[in-house]
């Protein structure tokens, strides 16, 4: 069971953002991707989640080809992404954000809404219960009924994680979950990720914060200029001379 990224290339004009990226990530694992600015990490997420089309290469999730699927279809296939800059539904409350993320709602079809009101009410009750659990799990109770646009950066990151959880995915792609988050909340987010991973949800995490990431993941890959330089356990990867050259600027 794995996410297979097979020889993915993507160019913007003459700039090769991704250059034959090849990665195999166990679906239930915690996997990190690091690399300097412009290494192609976010582009890789966009291609994997279907928001950008790859020029070449294939992507499979647990054996199923994702190449012809739209972004929503990829999410429904069990892989949900978050965004580097949080994209909360800012005029909706935290609770409403999470409720909107619940899959397969009868009340999201006009026919269901007007002709099966009983069923809609029943589902809303069940979703509200799941949302309450998620809010408690993420320690967002104090802000549950506030417009999400008013949350702090770290709370927005937690909300995005919560929304992803509502979809019940097997794999979550987190784009810089610790960027702009205060150290206390970083610890909180890490704990939640570890708890979720123990429940069987896999994570692929892009991160700038090298130190935070090496504490969290047993496996990581280093990217630079659209290529994967090395892959493996954090210490081994960081000791790789190619990586030291690219990421740490050759400082020894």
């Amino acid at each position: 069971m794995s996410l297979e990224i097979h020889d993915i290339s993507k160019a913007f004009g003459g700039f090769r953002a991704l250059d034959g990226v090849r990665l195999t990530i166990e679906t239930g694992s915690l996997f990190g991707i690091i690399g300097p600015n412009g290494a192609g990490k976010s582009t890789l997420f966009s291609v994997v989640s279907g928001f950008a089309r790859a020029d070449e290469g294939q992507i499979r999730l647990d054996g199923q080809s994702l190449d012809s699927l739209s972004p929503p279809a990829r999410a429904r296939a069990g892989m949900v992404r978050t965004f580097q800059v949080p994209r909360e539904f800012r005029h909706l409350t935290v609770r409403e954000n999470l409720m909107a993320a619940a899959p397969k709602q009868t009340g999201e079809s006009l026919l269901g809404l007007f002709f099966r009101p009983g069923r809609v009410r029943e589902e809303e009750g069940a979703i509200a219960e799941r949302v309450n659990q998620t809010i408690r799990f993420l320690r967002l109770s104090a802000v549950a009924d506030q417009p999400s646009g008013k949350l702090s950066g770290g709370q927005k990151k937690l909300l995005e994680l919560g929304r992803a959880l509502m979809v019940e995915p097997r794999l979550i792609l987190l784009d810089e979950p610790f960027a702009g988050v205060n150290p206390v909340l970083i610890g909180e987010i890490m704990e939640r990720i570890i708890e979720l991973n123990m429940r069987g949800i896999g994570f692929v995490i892009i991160e700038h914060d090298l130190e935070a990431l090496t504490r969290l993941v047993p496996q990581l890959a280093v990217m630079d200029r659209g290529k994967v330089l090395a892959q493996g356990a954090p210490q081994a990867v960081l000791d790789d001379p190619l990586v030291r050259e690219a990421y740490l600027g050759g400082v020894s």
Binding site: F51, E88, A164
Partner: peptide
């Protein structure tokens, strides 16, 4: 309303 606030995020949630 979620679409009004952020369409790509809606897509990312499978809708």
């Amino acid at each position: 309303e979620a679409i009004r606030d952020n369409e790509e995020a809606v897509q990312a949630l499978g809708k």
